[in-house]
Amino acid sequence: MIKIKKSDFSTFITNLQKNYSVFAPVTDGKATAFKKIKSAEDINNKVLNTKRSPKEIFFPQSEVLFQYTEEGIKVPKREEKPFAIWGMRNCDTKSLLLLDKVFGEAHQMPKKDMYKDPYWKEKYDNCLVFNLACNKPLSTCFCNWFDGGPFNNTGSDIFVIENDENYIFEAVSDKGKKFLKEFKTAEQVSDKEIKKIEKLKETAESYLAEKEDISSLFSKTKEIWDETIWDEIAAKCINCGACAFVCPTCHCFDVSDEGKGKKGKRIRLWDSCMFAIFTKEASGHNPRSQSLQRVRQRVMHKYNYFMDNYDEHLCTGCGRCVVVCPVNLDIREVIKKIIRY
């Protein structure tokens, strides 16, 4: 573990920018989101959960798949520098691993390569992820339910702890080790500071709400598929889709053509299973025409279907959906209700 003085942070970011396009939490008005920064001054290190999740760095809300003209199809060229993301929290770094299962890996069929998403891979595979520890988690955080934590570092390359006047760096992945090797001259962290970190971790964890045992969640969701509990849950939901748009793990998208004459582009845009037209076929047939079916789909996808396919829950407990839901439908309450049903 090494440390960098906060007063040197600006230089650190400038150096990082030499080899990377750097993204970090940026506050614009009242909202904070991960954006490409010009300098360290843009960064807001105080915010815990950005309003929108950093998935948009790798999987933007709208993304051009290709442009077409009379001459043919052209895939837009990506900027050359790999991405470095500063200031992600554990709930978000973990979400990248989950999204990589969908976009990066492909589990079902032979000839796996054709099931890999090149737009995701070109951004994600070379990126460098800095995971900033949460010294004071929010009341909506429930990462501990899903084996995450304010001082966990799954899914990151370098773990960063803010301690008084320093940022303490610890390599997590091989990529992270390689990066930190270049900081040979940096000051090592003292034993006293290591003890302080332990203390910070304890304090941070004490802010979290009590951990819910979700070991029965997978089997329980399967058992109650046909039960009336879904009426209770769905009664409140207005199918606005806000939860899906702020979620760091929701990955559904629509594909649409925009063009005039022989020129145009095919783009993909975030979509949500909350919307009635999401599954509506041209014939008019709609397998999930009712709100109940759509609410059940979202909950089941998170806590059952994804587990079936990838052995993980598609949720990291970031709590963004709890914050934005206009009808206060708290996903934690839904989970508890299901487990206790």
Partner: peptide, 12 residues
Amino acid sequence: RRMKCGIGKCGR
């Protein structure tokens, strides 16, 4: 079913 990507990503 209604489909977009055809390769298990778009989720519908």
